[in-house]
């Protein structure tokens, strides 16, 4: 391991399939201890990026470093301490959960023995079903076994791709708790998902990818803070209020929506100037509120997937 090298660092990562650029100059930096959300709609390039990180798919351009090592040049060193599940855990259906773990542990050369396997089986609460064939497992149990197959590697970096897919609500809640526990143990986690709710509950930082490009990278708090907030005004005379607003320099981009005015307002002196101007024009203020954009709305804005009827806030760039 290169001292102080981040668990994941990509620069200008590109993957093309024919004419389609699935991943387009992606830069990612995941720091030690991060629980990093990798968000984007289906087909945005998340899974392809993860495949490149794990050396399953060759990149067309750019660099990848896992703890300072390139998985294409030296996969054994680069993947030392790295574990991941792409799309969904794929295990040997005709073998028991325990036999799967024994088999995969043998590939790891970590010397993991029965006690280690018992430990991870306990951790994912599968000990009682460890002797059953995987073909008899539910989707949630497969996810947990998949995570156990990662944990048997004693990873420092864990990549999970859509771990909640096909899992029932109780299973999702369990997975969230497990991810938090693993993060508390110091494991860096990259969690790829198309569901904001899945990411915002556990992740400290996120990258949002859309059509192969990173459109935002930072913390969720920064994302929320960076969103431009619209004000909503209900007045006794909306048309006169609109005339007043058009004369106030602190008001921008005003729109009359029914009997409600919406606009962007300079934060510092805008409210004072506006209320004074409205009072002088003898327009009564029924309410003046500021929208708090939801993360979901921000996500849809970033990925240009506007749900029907949603208010779409503006977001400052990456």
């Amino acid at each position: 391991m290169t001292p102080f090298a981040p668990p994941i660092e990509t620069r200008g990562l590109v993957k093309c399939y024919g004419e389609l650029t699935a991943v387009d100059h992606v830069d990612l930096t995941v720091g030690v201890g991060d629980v990093y959300g990798f968000l984007g709609p289906n087909g945005a390039g998340k899974t392809t990026t993860l495949r490149m990180l794990l050396g399953l798919v060759r990149r067309d351009a750019g660099t990848i470093r896992l703890f300072g090592h390139d998985p294409a040049e030296d996969p054994i060193r680069a993947l030392d301490g790295v574990a991941g599940i792409i799309e969904e855990p794929r295990l040997y259906e005709y073998m028991s959960g325990r036999a799967n773990l024994e088999l995969l542990a043998s590939f790891d050369r970590t010397g993991a023995g029965p006690a280690d396997i018992d430990e991870v089986l306990n951790m994912v609460e599968l000990h009682d079903r460890a002797g059953d064939r995987v073909s008899e497992y539910s989707q949630g149990m497969r996810q947990r076994l998949g995570i156990a197959s990662c944990l048997i590697r004693r990873p420092r970096l864990l990549m999970l791709d859509e771990p909640a897919n096909g899992v029932d609500p109780a299973g999702i809640r369990y997975l969230r708790g497990l991810i938090r526990r693993l993060a508390d143990e110091g494991i860096t986690i990259l969690l790829s998902s198309h569901l904001l709710a899945e990411v915002q509950e556990v992740c400290s930082r996120v990258a949002v990818i859309n059509k192969g490009c990173i459109v935002y990278e930072g913390s969720l708090a920064e994302l929320r803070a960076g969103a431009a907030r619209r004000h909503r005004l209900r007045a006794t005379d909306p048309h006169r209020a609109s005339d007043v607003c058009s004369r106030v320099g602190a008001v921008r981009d005003q729109r009359l929506e029914g009997d409600e005015l919406t606009f962007l307002l300079d934060d510092e002196k805008g409210p004072l100037v506006l209320t004074k101007a409205l009072a002088q024009a003898e327009v009564g203020i029924i309410s003046l509120t500021r929208d708090q954009p939801t993360l979901e709305a921000l996500f849809f804005r970033l990925t240009a997937e506007e749900p029907e009827g949603a208010a779409v806030p503006e977001v400052s760039g990456t």
Partner: peptide
């Protein structure tokens, strides 16, 4: 076809 190839390729063997 079963997807287990990707499971073993991300372990510690070339």
């Amino acid at each position: 076809m079963a997807g287990t190839l990707k499971t073993i390729l991300v372990r510690s063997l070339r």
